[in-house]
Design a protein around this nucleic acid. Sequence first.
DNA 1: AAGGGACGGGCATACGTATTCACTGGTTCA
DNA 2: TGAACCAGTGAATACGTATGCCCGTCCCTT
Lengths: 338, 338
Amino acid sequence: MGRRPTSFDIAQLAGVSQPTVSRALRGSKSVNAQTRQRIEAIARSLHYAVDKHASSLRSQSANTLALLFFEEPAEDESTINPFFLSMLGSITHACARAGYDLLISFQQLSGDWHVDYQDSRKADGIILLGYGDYEAYRARLDHLTEQGTKVVRWGAVGTGPAGITVGSDNRGGGEAATAHLIARGRRRIAFLGAADGRYPELEDRYLGYRDALAAAGLAVDDGLQVDAITTEDAGREAIAELARRGADYDAIFAASDSIAIGAMRALAAAGRSIPDDVAIVGFDDIASAQLTNPPLTTVTQDARRAGEALVRTLLVKLRGEVSEDAFLPTRLVIRASS
Amino acid sequence: MGRRPTSFDIAQLAGVSQPTVSRALRGSKSVNAQTRQRIEAIARSLHYAVDKHASSLRSQSANTLALLFFEEPAEDESTINPFFLSMLGSITHACARAGYDLLISFQQLSGDWHVDYQDSRKADGIILLGYGDYEAYRARLDHLTEQGTKVVRWGAVGTGPAGITVGSDNRGGGEAATAHLIARGRRRIAFLGAADGRYPELEDRYLGYRDALAAAGLAVDDGLQVDAITTEDAGREAIAELARRGADYDAIFAASDSIAIGAMRALAAAGRSIPDDVAIVGFDDIASAQLTNPPLTTVTQDARRAGEALVRTLLVKLRGEVSEDAFLPTRLVIRASS
DNA sequence: AAGGGACGGGCATACGTATTCACTGGTTCA
DNA sequence: TGAACCAGTGAATACGTATGCCCGTCCCTT
């Protein structure tokens, strides 16, 4: 056999020209049905598959999407946010269903990712995944959208260029979590997570927290808000900070499960009981949330639907249509920590 | 601006021919250093990047690796083995360092994955990841290696075609885990996990278990071995099976953390205390192992080195050199469950 | 002074596909 | 009985790069 077969080989065997083979295999309706079937049969018997690079070169489209994970520069490469990993399955499946390949890459926020995929034509569109200091990549993001690059990102709906964001109802989720704690009789509820604009998703959760307090007629005590990024260390540190302040609290709403888990560890180490002394609610519903002691009440985001929405939105943009930001509902999962 | 720049544009601006641009940018030494620098400067200023598809078509190499995850057909797509996910980071980084892109895909064991990447030239080599019934894909694997396709897989060293397997020292890890339980004074140690050849990695762990028993002069009691695949459900079910048998045991070596976690749940539900009534050791050291109650003693596999070894081995094969199966050490991590 | 490298770079071409255009034979409609 | 049409197909070409081959120049050798 030697060489792998080309469309010319098929053409010869079928007694037609190469263009006819190309047309037949990609389903052009200007090919006679019989001819098509003959060609398809031959292609199958030779294990023929269209050469991806030749096809892409000619048609000027890669038939590939790129998935870019962002890390905080300092972070250990093994500590990928579990929530993003759980989207991986649905993203790959959604891509496969649409006939696209998926390239995957991890990037530093500070890197040159904003030109690589565009310039080398590796992918037709890009999916951006990552919590991270939003300001740090806003400029690159704007650059991409101005160039007409097709991009979607997971994040806080309402921030960044319109039509490219898919995100959870963070504010609603934050409100539900906080309202739940209030309904449990808690009155001094701490918020662990960034409240400024650098992490818009966390900020939205904070706003939801305030919504719930306001709805219940409770005052916001700034002494109960501690900045924390989404790592366990940050959660531990936040508890230490509250102790330093001498803050008095009977509940915690942590802006992510990672923060919550870190906080629970610190509380356990300090001998405070959960939920008796301090009730706690997280956000994300990562796999570990079921395993904490006690199991963590949290706000679940539907990773499967999230991944599908990202791909769907990107495909809409690839077709040249205008897409709207997508907004996914969240749901409170009550476990023993509250 | 309009079009994206090609090597011809650069050539014109630099006053050289297109081939010279190509040679300069890919570091051929037959280009004058000054000329090269001029070309590189122009390329940078135009944000030029080599068109991946044209390059691949001409050079007949994709500069891309494919990572294929296998699922058991029935399994839910969100339950990817956490250990494999933790390899993802190091695999992507190793690829990036080597200048390769990484395609990722999930596959059913029964699918046509063994022809797709080969025939369409999407990737130069394939990384296979997945526990799974080995018999179910042995034929496809053989087919690939016979065709000369470059493949590496994670699995039990010694099974399958030579030179393409990277795996942990499962037998040594199993022995260490079991010896540890024996050293803790346990004598009736159950093994949860497949002992037959369908899951060679689990089988190796079982052999290690027997090694340790033999070394301690303990007899193997077949009534203490229960088949289980690596899911929490299987772990739960295994405990039920032991109860059904009326088996008497004071320790468990579970062939994976998932099994161990399921078993712990079942034991807790049955009111048996860990480690007092039953000590338990797992295998993998997934993130959740630290969060169980009590934290799980387990055998850790170095996911980072594993990913790097997979990529390294594959690159060796791509260079046409002969590679050897790689063998990674394991390490017992003692926590409170034993 | 003539021969021989080494160096630097141009010319031509090939990689395998998709698409535009032109062409053929048959059909339909006035 | 043309003319206008349509379905079906082939010829030619372009996509952007990498590489084999060849040629000129300069310098060194004998």
